[in-house]
Design a protein around this nucleic acid. Structure first.
Lengths: 335, 335
DNA sequence: CTGTTAGCGCTTTCAG
DNA sequence: CTGAAAGCGCTAACAG
């Protein structure tokens, strides 16, 4: 069922029917009703591709993230969607699985014009930004969030990793920790660097030495990470606290502690960046620093729409918006 | 940059360029190379809408789920995507937020032909299936997973809720539970009914009476649910075990236990259906029954592609495929 | 208020 | 092997 057939049945021209369906004020109420009724009767829905081709816009936004089965990103999507939906747009989700090649492939694909805007969070290994520049050259509005590139001009929404890490580390120090290890992920990402810097600043502020052996850089291999942590926690000079940059590493640490018979928090305190909303309930010994995932997604979407709705002559500043993380200590926040 | 412009620059016809780009064997290797080089130079990408309009297919699949920020569904999407991507298709995700109206709106929207197939998991309140029938009438391949309707002919992928609930309840009984409560969600959903039936069967098998007061039907209001559980656990005849049909209800129970000073598992044992992969690590006192979320998504996608790839005369049976859940007891499964 | 018409950019016969 | 041309279904400028 298409416009042509509808028009024939109604003895109207295609354009009148089209206009009636789109509630144009050039059409009389009477015809509108007639058309609407017929359309409903035949369960007519305008072809998406034809109208998009004609209008050169799709009312859809692409969200590119490393992994969907990740509490942070799924919450961020939720925030983004809440905004996008209000605008009557749709969401197309692409996962890179933290693989640069896939990120590049997706970036190429998105140049075909199927979306009106793109929200992106990079893989841990993205260093070349050629594929991102290409998108910008095609004038497709582009906003980065969380895992953002530092060498490209574009709006970026991030959290204050530095400050949060500093607070988290200080929390450990205040609770008696003296030898604090940090578990990082890939150090290409700015989030890792910021978190590490916050950690180091906290140590300095409290006259604690930075011990290189206490700084672990982990990767995607769970077993290798556990081995590193095991070595650290079995060593003569083992730390009495751990700051995990991501939850996965905190969980690995839990397992190693159990393996080695170390008690939490007596023998060793653990604090973690976490986006598993229920983590603190499921495990009272885990103190967490929580990123406002939902808000980041929502804010990124809001900025993206500013770009989309901006007229050609208007210029939106490419500033970085920094949202605050929350230190979430179970004892002090629960009644 | 479009075909026309490319053709002009190359002194070729539009159709030749189009063919070359799609690697047609009607084109000489020489011209192909020329075309490919030019295309790359100009960073050309075929317009998605134009080619879809022409070909009447989009190589994209819609996945409709209640909520993305939910471990089960995000894992299911992951499984689906792994399959869909291999086929060179894309994924369009729609959230209903467990709202029937939104589900209907999405179903209507998807009739515009923007996707080649649909995977769907219903809201807890979907009872009318008119909007689902409409999709079928438009001959858009449709597959249901997890939250499936019982009164419509279509492929459905589910887990064996009955058997899993039975095993979970028996696990409690074997560990000394005699008064077992069940926390259900909306009883329109077949999953709830199956889980309840499994629970009841286990009780019968062990000569335990079914106590109506021990069967709670919860809804979307966290506070109301907690109030119900609080009442149950403060009552004179309080149960010594709980089987939670969803994790959220287990977490509520934890909180109430803490509030009332009940010890787990001494005073009360809790077992839960759970899809939070890390739940057992984060909380050793929680025994879980885990659905194979990833596999469900993957299987649903596989079945959907059978429908998509089936020729008109072929018929794919609309049978329900049941995947097995896993009982996940920390002590017995960890080394 | 309604109709005619010219494309949007691409694929695909059909004709050479 | 290459080109001309029709048309996917819709929208919007233009004409009445």
């Amino acid at each position: 069922m298409n416009l042509k057939q509808l028009a024939q049945e109604l003895n109207l021209s295609i354009s009148s029917v089209s206009r009636a369906l789109r509630d144009s004020k050039e059409i009389s109420e009477k015809t509108k009703k007639l058309v609407l009724a017929k359309a409903k009767e035949h369960n007519y829905h305008a072809n998406h591709f034809a109208s998009n081709l004609r209008k050169q816009k799709s009312k859809t936004i692409a969200v590119v993230i490393p992994e969907i089965a990740n509490n942070f990103f799924s919450s961020a999507i939720n925030g983004a969607e809440s905004f996008i939906q209000k605008k009557g747009f749709h969401v197309l989700i692409y996962q890179t699985h933290d693989d640069v090649q896939q990120e590049v492939a997706i970036a190429k694909h998105l140049q075909n014009g199927r979306v009106d805007g793109i929200m992106m969070s990079l893989t841990s290994h993205t260093s070349s930004i050629h594929h991102l520049k290409e998108i910008q050259h095609k004038n497709i509005p582009l906003v980065f969030f969380d895992r953002v590139p530092h060498n490209i001009e574009a709006p970026k929404i991030t959290t204050n990793d530095y400050e949060s890490a500093l607070k988290a580390t200080e929390h450990l120090i205040k609770n008696g920790a003296t030898k604090i290890a940090i578990l990082c992920i890939s150090n290409i990402l700015s989030i890792t660097n910021n978190r590490k810097e916050g950690y180091e600043a906290a140590l300095k502020n409290h006259q604690l030495k930075i011990n290189k052996n206490y700084i672990l850089t982990c990767d995607d291999s769970r077993e290798a990470n556990k081995q590193q942590i095991r070595k650290l926690l079995s060593s003569a000079n083992r730390p009495n606290a751990i700051f995990a940059c991501v939850e996965e590493l905190a969980i690995c640490s839990f397992e190693i502690c159990q393996e080695l018979g170390l008690k939490i928090p007596q023998d060793i305190k653990i604090i973690s960046y976490s986006n598993l909303q229920t983590a603190d309930i499921l495990n009272p010994s885990l103190t967490t620093v929580t990123q406002p995932a939902y808000e980041i997604g929502k804010e990124a979407a809001a900025v993206l729409f500013k770009l989309i709705e901006a007229t050609a002559n208007e210029k939106i500043p490419n500033k970085e918006i920094v949202l605050k993380s929350q230190l979430f200590v179970r004892n002090s926040t629960k009644k």
